[in-house]
């Protein structure tokens, strides 16, 4: 699938919902719990293909997950249990680097 910054996605196998905060223009294989993520509000795939998932922590609400290159970054807007992957590799939780509060 192709993703854009600001796009909202959801899992097909659990309650996970996400918003895209970094995207590359390339085609990406983004999955949660082994099934392809779909756009929020779109109907699920008839029989989603569910791949085996590597061991990794489940997505936590309000945390950002990215691939090692930082090309793709997703913010979890609803927590779930499935592991987030890009091309089979688990996304990693991005360390928070909070700016000082300004307003």
């Amino acid at each position: 699938m192709r993703i854009n910054v600001g796009q909202r996605l959801r899992s097909q196998v659990d309650s996970t919902e996400l918003i895209v905060t970094r995207a590359s223009s390339e085609e990406v294989d983004l999955r949660c719990g082994g099934a392809e993520l779909i756009e929020l509000g779109h109907p699920p795939t008839a029989e989603p293909q569910v791949l085996a998932v590597p061991e990794a922590p489940e997505p936590r609400l309000g945390k950002r997950y990215r691939d090692p290159d930082g090309a793709v970054e997703l913010l979890v807007t609803k927590a779930g249990t499935g592991v987030l992957t890009l091309a089979g590799e688990p996304l990693i939780e991005k360390e928070a680097k909070p700016l000082p509060a300004s307003d």
Binding site: G6, I19, T21, G62, L75, K97, P98, L99
Partner: peptide, 27 residues
Amino acid sequence: QANLLSYVLETVDFGSAEPGDAIVVSM
């Protein structure tokens, strides 16, 4: 809303405040 959402998501980490934090807004 995309402008404002982008500002919030770029500058604030969700739930990053310490317990008990409070701001006075006089603007």
